[in-house]
Design a protein around this nucleic acid. Structure first.
Lengths: 226, 226
DNA sequence: GCACAAAATCTTGTACACAAGCGGGCCGCC
DNA sequence: GGCGGCCCGCTTGTGTACAAGATTTTGTGC
């Protein structure tokens, strides 16, 4: 058996499940940016009272996925191009930090896990399953942050990714994605295996920066079309 | 008159004021780390019902100042030495980013504001008023992030500082603080004026890293004494 | 017909009551 | 006498009613 500390299966309260439900609805686009969240209507639709729903909305607002104005209600947040740029900018800096720390602390086990996740992403791209790629990619970044061993870093990056997740389609539908990630896979694993913190940091920063440019380009194109 | 965009004085709801009150109580040490937050007792003490109090506690929990376990209540968070280390690590990376961006975008006005805040801090130290120095220092960092022009960055740094604020005494009671900050003041202003992003980033990173080491040293010393 | 104002209506914020889960203490059993 | 299970008290979670603020609609005066 492994010696991992087990989580004592915390009881999940209603507002937590409501939070996750809303997260799913927003992520799936059912609740599109700008949609007002009518508390009564949503509560009825989810089969709960307003109390846990309000708690869930408050959390989403705190995380920046929803804007909540006093007495005026909440609505799914609309991000401006500049804000999206800013999200990626912060994320790039923190992913670089995570990579640097992870390289320094990397174990054989951790490296194997990360390699497996990168492979998973590649396999998904080969199969044309962009959705699966996105999930594997998210797990890769999460694992990397985990190895870095800094809870604040992990949580902050999680928060950024939750917001960025809304534009994942723009990031993942780029041409040549498969070839690019295949190249990067080797470089990243190599840097991590060599415990080359600077190298890993630079690679991750470039990686995020490239996504950032892709997304911004698509956004501005899309805006021009209008 | 200045041409600053004016905030339309948003109505402040009760749970917001309760949040601020709790923040003050925690910051002042009235609610020390580990203190359980009894909802009934706190609500009575603040003259408020449990509903807005719970909202405020939920926000504090989300920000990481309080831990909240289902059906077991909330308590003021106790930070481990490793967690404090991690907080400063993330903060250093983001302050560096902020400095880099701020240097690139710096205006004469902004530079004057920042110089004034640094001077204010120096004056406070000269007068032996550590509390005033802490406030001026916080405003300096906030102004720098503001000039960087990335709301996500500003908010993330604010969140980190709110948590770090709990250990400010450890950081501000170091010997030679005044001389050090006086030296740094010149270097930072110079780098910003020259729009030297790399230089400003390095300076801020060093600055935070130095605080980090000071705080950690004091913490380990204090632990050994026990 | 238009502009402004006041009231009606709807939505969110707060208070309170009830339900659900946890911890401690007690009792019985081995 | 020690251990395990059960019951009771207490705290937190959820539902609901009422209050406060915002929006819309309607009415009135010009």
């Amino acid at each position: 058996m492994s010696a991992e500390p087990i989580e004592p299966l915390r009881h999940q309260t209603l507002h937590e499940r409501v939070y996750e439900a809303l997260l799913g609805l927003i992520g799936a686009g059912v609740l599109a940016p700008g949609t007002p969240l009518d508390e009564q209507a949503l509560a009825a639709r989810l089969g709960v009272s307003r109390t846990p729903l309000r708690a869930a909305i408050a959390r989403l607002a705190q995380e920046g996925l929803v804007v909540n104005l006093p007495y005026r209600g909440a609505s799914v947040r609309r991000f401006t191009v500049a804000e999206i740029d800013g999200l990626y900018e912060v994320r790039a800096a923190l992913e670089a930090l995570a990579a640097r720390k992870a390289a320094a602390r990397m174990s054989a086990d951790g490296l194997a896990t990360i390699a497996a996740l990168l492979d998973e992403g590649q396999a998904a791209l080969a199969a044309g399953d962009v959705e699966a790629y996105g999930q594997a990619d998210a797990r890769f970044h999460r694992a990397l942050a985990e190895v870095a061993g800094n809870p604040t870093l992990t949580e902050t990056l999680d928060g950024l990714r939750r917001r960025i997740h809304l534009f994942r389609d723009l990031a993942n539908r780029q041409p040549g994605l498969r070839e690019r990630t295949a190249r990067e896979r080797e470089l990243i694993l190599d840097a991590l295996a060599r415990r080359d913190g600077d190298g890993a940091a630079a690679l991750l920063e470039q990686h995020i920066d490239h996504i950032r440019r892709t997304v911004l380009q698509q956004l501005t194109e899309w805006e021009r079309e209008k």
